[in-house]
Design a protein around this nucleic acid. Structure first.
Length: 485
RNA sequence: GCUCCCAUCGUCUAGCGGUCUAGGACGUCGCCCUCUCACGGCGAAAACAGGGGUUCGAGUCCCCUUGGGAGCGCCA
């Protein structure tokens, strides 16, 4: 390794950090880590109209949440405008660029003509060799690159291979606008060069830009970086994943209950593979990631697979961590569920205790929280349709029948509870399920839940007896309802 | 329209000329486990877009067609 690898992630703060950007950032981060290099972050905010502070915040927060950390200070492109101008001026002085006074109207006309003649729309170079003395009085010129008119421009890409453009198909792009501000094309080249970027890993949509940027590098006499243009991520329907097609910001994935580790794992396998391995710890990802295994074709985003991965990471996560993550989501998930901004200590303890059974059955944090509703909802819990149907007269009679036995259980631990329930079922000639399901319905309001005896242990003896009495057949058990708190 | 990129199960992908009667994962469907649901285990259905070449031999190389996608701004 002759020179240390430097990659960069360079989003423009005109919106949230979307899934494609997140993967690009992840790839840059992994590649830099893999080679012991650095990943820099540059905010491309030269579009003053559309750039916002909120978007910058969303991008930074999104990266942090995803666990992608950049090296050094964030570079703000707009702050480097003077340097960009200086580069354009040097090109002008060297004769590699020139002033162009063409008006918007003329440009429009050129594109029109080109299209009509079946040529790629491009600037015709009318000011390329024209005497500046002919410039219309008072007109502010732009500075255009004097691009090579013949020959070809080649991009050796680590993903796409060798891509060749005929120079006649590329026009003299604008480097500096008439108001003296740099264009994206110039700014990127100058910044990547100044920041010492060795590898540009970005979306496929920049492939053509790589050709044009190569011409700028050449004119400046600089060495081009290594390129790796990764295929875009499409929506489930195969169409481009854009804001209009329901693309979500990374914060939306957080609120949907996905874990950063799961998202990283899902994203790294979207467009990149390592034999048949599907699950990667961060260390494994860093160790295995490399450019040659990046695929060339675009991938569709598949929520089902993300959910599966999320379930995997949920099951692996320590119980306390999940509760903490749940708590972090309370501001957005709590209100609709009657929960505040935090869990009180008692509920918190119950959640931790119930978590082993809860997390095994959920794909997302939202599902974890919902399936735990019997711990924080009303008592007795409202019955859903299936639970209501299940609690017919016979079932309610069974509830009444087991009440005395349960009142005797001590200590109130899962094995002891299970022993009593089983012996009751056996003695009365019921199958365990005939007793367990009514109990489940009475205690949770649903027909599905974590293991019944674990649920009972977490709920506590008094609460269980109260809930069972509330649903049991015996009339004299009813008054006890009010005592159930 | 022009330039460029892409093409293996529904989806993500393995495959880098012969070991492919094409492998894994998600999803789907069965069966087992079982107090429910999950988890887990076992099994099934499911793909080399089409056509030409090259080669003793092509999913793998070349060309065309078709189908996707991206880019063509004094946006980034």
């Amino acid at each position: 390794m002759s020179r240390p690898v430097v990659t960069r992630f360079a989003p423009s703060p005109t919106g949230f950090l979307h899934i494609g950007g997140a993967r690009t950032a992840l790839f840059n981060w992994l590649y830099a880590r893999h080679l012991g290099g650095r990943m820099l972050l540059r905010i491309e905010d030269t579009d003053r109209e559309r750039s916002t502070e909120a978007a910058i915040g969303a991008i930074l927060d999104g990266l942090s949440w995803l666990g992608i950390e950049w090296d050094g200070d964030v570079v703000y492109q707009f702050a480097r405008a003077a340097r960009h101008r200086e580069a354009a001026e040097s090109l002008l002085a060297a004769g590699r660029a020139y002033h162009c006074y063409a008006t918007q109207g003329e440009l429009e006309e050129m594109r029109e003509t080109a299209r009509r003649e079946g040529r790629p729309p491009r600037y015709d170079g009318r000011w390329r060799d024209r005497d500046p003395a002919e410039a219309p009085a008072g007109a502010k010129p732009v500075i255009r690159l004097r691009a090579p008119g013949e020959g070809e421009t080649v991009v050796e890409d680590h993903v796409q291979g060798r891509v060749v453009w005929q120079n006649r198909d590329l026009d003299d792009l604008v480097l500096l606008r008439s108001d003296g501000t740099p264009t994206y094309m110039l700014a990127v080249v100058v910044d990547d060069h100044d920041m010492g970027v060795t590898h540009v890993i970005r979306g496929d949509d920049h492939l053509t830009n790589a050709a044009r940027q190569t011409q700028i590098y050449d004119a400046l006499g600089w060495e081009t970086p290594e390129w790796a243009h990764i295929p875009l991520i499409h929506g489930p329907d195969g169409a481009k994943l854009s804001k209009r097609h329901g693309a979500l910001g990374i914060d939306a994935y957080r609120e949907l209950g996905y874990l950063p580790a799961a998202l990283r794992n899902y994203l790294v396998r979207l467009g990149w593979s390592y034999g048949n391995q599907e699950i990667f710890s961060d260390a494994e990802m860093v160790a295995a990631f490399d450019l040659p295994q990046i695929g060339r074709s675009p991938a569709r985003f598949d929520f089902a697979k993300l959910e599966n991965l999320n379930g995997h990471y949920l099951r692996e996560a320590p119980d306390e961590e999940i509760v903490a993550a749940l708590e972090g989501l309370l501001p957005v998930l709590g209100p609709a569920r009657g929960l505040g901004r935090g869990f009180d200590p008692a509920l918190r303890a119950k959640l931790v205790q119930a978590m082993p059974g809860l997390k095994e059955r959920a794909k997302t944090l939202v599902e974890v929280l919902d399936s735990a509703s019997f711990l924080y909802g009303p008592s007795p819990p409202a019955l859903d349709g299936k639970a209501e149907a299940l609690l017919d007269g016979a079932a309610r009679a069974r509830l009444a029948g087991i009440l005395p036995g349960l009142a005797e259980v001590a200590p109130w631990e899962a094995p002891e509870i299970e022993a009593v329930v089983r012996s009751f079922a056996e003695g009365a000639g019921f199958k365990l399920g005939q007793v367990a399901q009514p109990l489940r319905a009475a205690l949770t309001g649903r027909t599905t839940s974590p293991g019944l005896f674990d649920v009972m242990a977490v709920l506590g003896q008094a609460e269980c007896l109260a809930r069972i009495r509330a649903r049991a057949a015996s009339a004299e058990a009813r008054p006890a309802l009010s005592a159930a708190g």
